[in-house]
Computed example of a mutant assay.
Amino acid sequence: MTETATKSRQRPFLKWAGGKYSLLDELDKHLPSGGRLIEPFVGGGSVFLNSSKHAEFLLGDANADLINLYQMLAVVPGKVARHARFMFEHMGDAESFAAIRTQFNNQQMDGPERAAAFLYLNRHCFNGLCRYSLSNKFNVPYGKYRAPYYPEQEIKEFTAMAHNCVFMNAGFRRTLALAGSGDVVYCDPPYEPLPGTSGFTSYSAGGFAWEEQVALAEHCFAAHERGARIVISNSGAPKIVDLYHQHGFVIHEVHGRRSISSKGSTRTAAKDVVATL
């Protein structure tokens, strides 16, 4: 793909740990065409936002706040934007951040305002992380950014696609149960930690244990038997490679743009996999 084509990619409007924007060229090689693209872990949405191979989208995620934001932007984008602009323009300090986070966690907002608050928290919190406590409270601290970017154009591009999308607040089991003949499924679960490292599993209050990785592979195999084509991204952890081989997946190695060491002197690019069925 040329540099010009790469630059034309649509960026997601959220910061999202593990987002696939930098791997879109690699993923595109393995993602087949189909009538509908199903994503059980839609996250920041880089993949569906840049799909030219699918006409419709079923987009699920276990994160209720993420799906609320997407749904509100699909039906009342103007209301979300008004709330969000006010927050970005007038509530950029640590005290305001704490106040919005408290209101957000105490369920003191209606749908559009809560959607705007989630966008605000995402852009103002530390590293754009999305993390919850065991009691399902958003608990990422203030990021101390001078002027967080308000993604106006990216939101407009998202809303222009939303009429082709169905958004589901659901775990992967419910979403995959809807996959069948003619569908393409792309799964981007929380990555299994590589040996000797710790993983990020708090994308929702319940986390994502090894048992979930096994269940995902099983449900993907079942969807394939119903006629769907499957693509999964994950780390190159040996147990993940073995799991996917056991279920008949073809394994493709890709070089992920993430480090596997906290020390700059020993930081190397991780080897990830894309598994297809």
Rank of each mutant, 00 (worst) to 15 (best):
Glu154Gln: 10
Leu129Trp: 04
Ala275Phe: 09
Gln10Phe: 05
Asn136Ile: 05
Val75Cys: 10
Ile100Cys: 10
Phe167Pro: 01
Met72Arg: 13
Phe86Trp: 10
Val185Leu: 00
His163Glu: 08
Lys144Asn: 11
Leu134Thr: 08
Leu121Gln: 02
Gly207Met: 11
Phe86Tyr: 13
Asp242Ser: 15
Leu73Arg: 09
Lys271Trp: 08
Arg229Met: 14
Ala228Ser: 10
Asn139Ala: 10
Asp272Glu: 15
Ile100Phe: 06
Ala84Met: 03
Leu49Cys: 04
Ala55Asp: 11
Gly60His: 12
Val166Gly: 00
Pro189Leu: 02
Cys165Glu: 00
Val250Asn: 12
His163Val: 04
Ser261Met: 11
Ala270Glu: 14
Tyr145Glu: 07
Arg258Ile: 10
Gln107Ser: 14
Ile38Glu: 10
Ala223Trp: 08
His245Arg: 15
Lys79Ala: 11
Lys137Glu: 13
Arg229Ile: 09
Val254Pro: 05
Val166Gln: 01
Val241Trp: 08
Lys79Phe: 05
Pro195Ile: 01
Phe97Thr: 01
Ala117Gln: 04
Gly43Thr: 07
Phe88Ala: 00
Ile155Gln: 03
Glu154Asp: 07
Ile155Trp: 00
Ala116Leu: 02
Val241Asp: 09
Val254Trp: 09
Asp65Ala: 13
Ala177Ile: 05
Met87Trp: 02
Arg173Ala: 14
Pro40Ala: 08
Arg257Leu: 14
Gly264Glu: 13
Lys156Asn: 02
Leu178Met: 11
Tyr149Val: 03
Ala17Asn: 03
Ser46Asp: 07
Asp93Phe: 01
Ser259Ile: 08
Ala64Thr: 12
Glu95Val: 13
Lys79Glu: 06
Asn68Val: 09
His219Gly: 11
Leu37Gln: 03
Tyr203Leu: 06
Asn136Tyr: 04
Gly196Ile: 04
Glu218Arg: 15
Gly196Asp: 03
His90Gln: 15
Glu157Trp: 05
Val231Arg: 07
Val185Ser: 00
Pro195Ser: 01
Glu95Gly: 13
Ser202Arg: 15
Ala115Met: 08
Ser181Leu: 06
Ser259Glu: 11
Val241Thr: 10
Met91Leu: 11
Tyr120Arg: 02
Arg174Gln: 13
Pro141Leu: 04
Leu178Lys: 13
Glu56Cys: 09
Asp183Thr: 03
Tyr145Phe: 09
Asn164Gln: 11
Arg229Lys: 15
Phe167Arg: 03
Ser198Pro: 08
Val47Cys: 08
Gln108Ala: 15
Pro141Glu: 06
Glu26Lys: 05
Arg123Asn: 06
Leu277Cys: 12
